[in-house]
Design a protein around this nucleic acid. Structure first.
Length: 566
DNA sequence: ATCGCAAACGATCTTAAAGGGAACTTTAA
């Protein structure tokens, strides 16, 4: 078990204790132990019991729980709590906006044991009748529960990536299988996956199907499976799996057919038919050969969504999509000054080691007390440390920034004097997320028009599969960024991937720059830029339109010119 | 349950918004 799994178990134990009305101080000790574990930069599995006991916030009981977790994947206290809580009620703890206390009422007073029970109770008006609930809460609950139910079989891309790779290898190694290739949504790098698809090349489909069904972890769904397709699922993986079969002659045709979205396959071709019907006219030896046969330049899988790629490919105007090697520096990162796991020095040295030219540090601002946000004097301390590190690490450069909360009224979180002391400012909303579209848009517009704002951070506050973002008028916001020269972040955390890639096209039309930012809270977090890059490519982003593709000299000039416009 | 001060025990404290219900509880960043 790794730290993040241990953290998850301790947090769950804390939530369940609160649900069952345990001593609040005992409850809190579990929650805070979970936080402590989350903040460690060394794996608990590598520590002795004595070393674990020496960690502040982890005492005798917690050390024993951790030992049990490492040994058996659970601990007695957690097992007991799980035993007396229905699975559906545990699922309710994930409802955004409703915590353990409210869930306890819904379960014990209202009798709900599943998410579906809750919807029924909302329909019957029974939720509004419960103590501590009323009309408004009932509707908020209905929306949050519907969202969770709608996402029951959907998963973030990053969480299925490894399973897809493992399955691919396992299946390719089966004696009856010639080749196994990723296709469908994951091949297109969609941010949320509701079906995993693979294409198997084999002579004898029947035999291949049977061997696949034998693989550990896979469960076949006999009813849905057919001679041409295996349907089923993998233990612990939410989206269902569909495996297509093809002989080697038709493999490329099947790959193209299963990779593109329906909208892509329906795109018109110059002969008045569609991609889909063109595929039926022959067997192709490569994807490139197929697209050329219909007068199109080859289209990479990420772009096959049925948007503008058909026209681009026909007119030879496909964008030169951004690549990892186009990223020259890393912006929007946290350190131990606020809620990051690693020190400023560690973050900088690691960034430099990876070959980047610069790092933009933007810890949380003072209002974010829960994240140890920086008051004025700590901003100054950090800037002094940055100055010293810059001397030492030159020519590598750390830019001093801040992730300033956009307060409820749309203003930033410091005085003019402090705001003016930063090289760049990421402005993001972190609190008061419950807004209508008018209020949210006005709040963001005011922040965009603040002359100190350099980058607009995670635009909608969404958490994929967990929580809907607040609604915003994307056009109005992008237009304002065009007017003010504010850069829009593509937050690369696989939980967010916000702004949504579907709006990149509009932003590029308006001449707005984007920035692929990892929002890293630890050194390892830099890797998330990969996920941001995938969705950026889906949106047609090129290196030219991406802020952190600038080299050090260019971005230094960019920050300076933005500051001089004030 | 943990910590700190002290030797068995007491204190444990982010804060603001929101909703429900008329002073407070719950939630979430």
């Amino acid at each position: 078990m790794n730290n993040s799994e241990i953290k998850h178990s301790l947090k769950l134990a804390g939530q369940l204790m609160e649900l069952h009305g345990d001593n609040p101080f005992k409850t809190r000790s579990y929650t805070s132990a979970a936080d402590v574990v989350g903040g460690l930069d060394v794996e608990l599995a590598t520590l002795s019991e004595k070393e674990i006991l020496a960690i502040d916030g982890l005492g005798k009981s917690m050390a024993a729980n951790i030992a049990d977790l490492l040994h058996s994947g659970s601990f007695e206290g957690l097992n007991q709590l799980m035993d007396k809580t229905p699975v559906g009620v545990i699922e309710m703890l994930g409802i955004s906006g409703f915590g353990p206390k409210k869930v306890a009422v819904l379960w014990q007073e209202g009798g709900a044991e599943t998410l579906d029970d809750l919807l029924t109770m909302c329909d019957q008006g029974k939720v509004a009748a419960l103590k501590g609930f009323a009309e408004k809460s009932q509707e908020t609950l209905r929306a949050a529960v519907s969202f969770l139910i709608g996402n029951r079989f959907r998963e973030r891309y990053a969480n299925v990536e490894a399973v897809v790779a493992t399955l691919q290898t396992l299946i390719a190694d089966l004696p009856s299988v010639e080749q196994c290739q990723e296709t469908g949504q994951t091949r297109r790098r969609l941010e949320v996956i509701d079906q995993i698809e693979l294409l198997v090349v084999a002579e004898d489909f029947e035999e291949a199907r049977e061997q696949i069904s034998q693989l550990t972890g896979l469960e076949v769904d006999e009813r849905k499976s057919s001679p041409m397709a295996w349907y089923g699922k993998h233990v612990g993986v939410k989206p269902p799996i569909k495996i297509h079969f093809a002989d080697s002659d038709s493999a490329i045709n099947r790959l193209i057919e299963t990779t593109g979205s329906i909208e892509h396959l329906n795109l018109p071709t110059t002969d008045q038919t569609s991609i889909k019907s063109a595929l039926k006219k022959g067997r192709f030896v490569s994807e490139e050969a197929f697209y050329q046969s219909i007068g199109m330049k080859p289209i990479v899988p990420e772009l096959r969504e049925g948007r503008r790629e058909g026209d681009w490919a026909t007119q030879d105007r496909l964008p030169q999509l951004i690549e990892m090697s186009d990223l020259k520096g890393i912006l929007h990162n946290h350190s131990t000054y606020s809620d990051g796991k690693h020190t400023l020095r560690q973050m900088a040295e690691h960034c430099k080691q990876l070959g980047y030219e610069y790092l933009g540090i933007s810890d949380h601002s003072q209002t974010a007390v829960y994240a140890n946000g920086l008051p004025d004097f700590r901003v100054k301390q950090q800037q002094e440390e940055i100055r010293q590190l810059n001397e030492e690490l030159a020519p590598f450069k750390i830019f001093s920034g801040i992730e300033s909360d956009i307060l409820t009224d749309g203003s930033l979180d410091y005085s003019e004097e402090i705001l003016a002391s930063f090289d760049f400012i990421v402005a993001s909303v972190h609190s008061g997320l419950n807004m209508d579209i008018q209020k949210a848009t006005d709040r963001l517009l005011k922040a965009i028009h603040n002359p100190y704002t350099t980058i607009l951070g995670h635009m909608t506050g969404r958490l994929l599969v967990q929580r809907e973002g607040y609604p915003v008028d994307h056009r109005a916001i992008i237009d304002a960024c065009a007017e003010t020269g504010v850069v829009i972040e593509i937050n690369a955390s696989p939980y967010r991937l916000d702004m949504d890639w579907r709006w990149i096209e509009y932003a590029l039309d308006k001449g707005v720059k984007l920035s692929i930012n990892p929002d890293a809270h630890k050194m390892d977090g830099y890797k998330d830029m990969y996920y941001g890059l995938q969705v950026a490519r889906k949106g047609g982003l090129t290196a030219n339109d991406n802020l952190n593709s600038m080299n050090l000299a260019e971005i230094t000039a960019f920050f300076a010119s933005k500051r001089n416009k004030k």
